[in-house]
Design a protein around this nucleic acid. Structure first.
Lengths: 228, 228
DNA sequence: CGGCTTATTGACATACGTCAACTATTGTGG
DNA sequence: CCACAATAGTTGACGTATGTCAATAAGCCG
């Protein structure tokens, strides 16, 4: 592992919770893999051989349908562990992982991971928090899908993206809009129309560049109070 | 806690993973609450004061919209811990909990829970597995919502409910159909129509009583391979 | 056996998906 | 650095799954 990678790793909340000893054991057999844009890390149905931590770039977790339909369930970024559940339980992946940009991924053998998990209390303690956060991520998504319209889901997404809490903001989305659309559970066409609908609420978009007049009013519009 | 409750508790996988000592600490300040049918345990937005374990009955976790719309995200039953994430992270609940039947719930003070979590490695180790399972539950649901039609989601639900893997089966759903509909992300009317659509695939329903001609063929129809 | 809740059915509305044409962005090689 | 090709995004016309509202029928419980 490069010094740069180690530094990145040490900056994560996960590392802080884990401590040096446990982290050392965890990374002893780990290696860094360079994944090209669109590269596939694993497919749904595969048995997990590694636990992955994103060192740089963005990784999408998605599902595909035999019928060719596909959807992005979540995107993970620098410093995040993803789809731990399969590796922890040693069950087949429910999702496929694909690099949305060139990415560097720390590959921790699943076997090692489970060993350390049983031996190092600090690892399981740290994972409890990580998994709890991930659980809330998915609950928010389900609430969005079941309770909110396409435009509201987009508004929510924009509010989350623009870290400001009120006033105006401009955002440059780093995902392609079709990825955003998929993540939000709609087609690119519907996303375009959702942007059009948000014009009435002070959102101007040109491609991936978005300007929001007043975030507070957008927050109100999307009726989504549990954003935090 | 009644002897009956303790016995039930001891039979859970959770208890087995946890061991006597940790469980004793965990339950020292806990008590059993009787919740009437439709009783509210907590509401979204509340700060978690307890971690809950279902001793008997069924508890629905759902979300409501200011607009009056509501949805059931998941139903938890005997022996299950639910919405751990909020209590672990000490953040507001994302969901409300309501009893679908009269229920008995073990209430473990959240404070105690977090203390034991930090002190007893076996608790965090056990929770990792519980949370990992719960994560997969939600991922399956998201995949269903985004990739499958109402009829397919119903078929999947029926296949999961009928524990047989092939041949014929009859099921008696213990939830009212409107709860099932909500859990599956549709209206009761759409659920009725989904049942009608499944008639072509050998599913006969009269109210909550359902007869399936051939589960294997239903499995195929719902294109949902990661049921387990 | 009522009466009340729950489920079903029909008619209709609508949000979103699909398909296709067009336009804007982005990335690349001369 | 420009030009151009490739890819991504937008817009319009239209189809369809699912929601809504209302009326009826079926279960369910005292």
């Amino acid at each position: 592992m490069r010094a740069q990678d180690r530094k990145l790793l040490e900056a994560t909340r996960f590392y802080a919770a884990l401590g040096d000893t446990a982290m050392e054991r965890l990374t002893r057999n780990a290696f860094v893999q360079l994944v090209p844009k669109d590269g596939l890390l694993f497919m749904q149905g595969d048995m997990p051989e590694f636990v992955h931590l994103v060192l740089s770039g963005r990784i999408s977790l998605g599902a595909e349908d035999p019928g060719g339909h596909a959807t992005v369930v979540e995107v993970f970024r620098e410093g995040q562990l993803f789809i731990l559940a399969a590796a922890i339980l040693d069950k087949p992946y429910l999702l496929s992982a694909r690099a949305l940009s060139e990415a560097r991924v720390l590959m921790i053998p699943a076997e090692t991971f489970r060993e350390v998990l049983d031996a190092e209390p600090r690892l399981s303690r740290a994972l409890v928090d990580v998994l709890a956060e991930h659980w809330r991520l998915l609950v928010r998504q389900i609430k969005g899908l079941k309770l909110h319209s396409a435009a509201e889901r987009l508004a929510t997404y924009l509010v989350i993206r623009s870290d400001a809490r009120d006033g105006a903001a401009t955002i440059r989305l780093d995902e392609e809009l079709r990825i955003v659309a998929s993540r939000l559970g709609m087609t690119p066409e519907s996303l375009s129309r959702a942007f059009t609908a948000l014009r009435a609420h002070g959102v101007a978009s040109r491609g991936r560049s978005i300007a929001i007049d007043d975030i507070a009013s957008l927050r109100r519009m999307c009726r989504y109070e549990d954003l935090e």
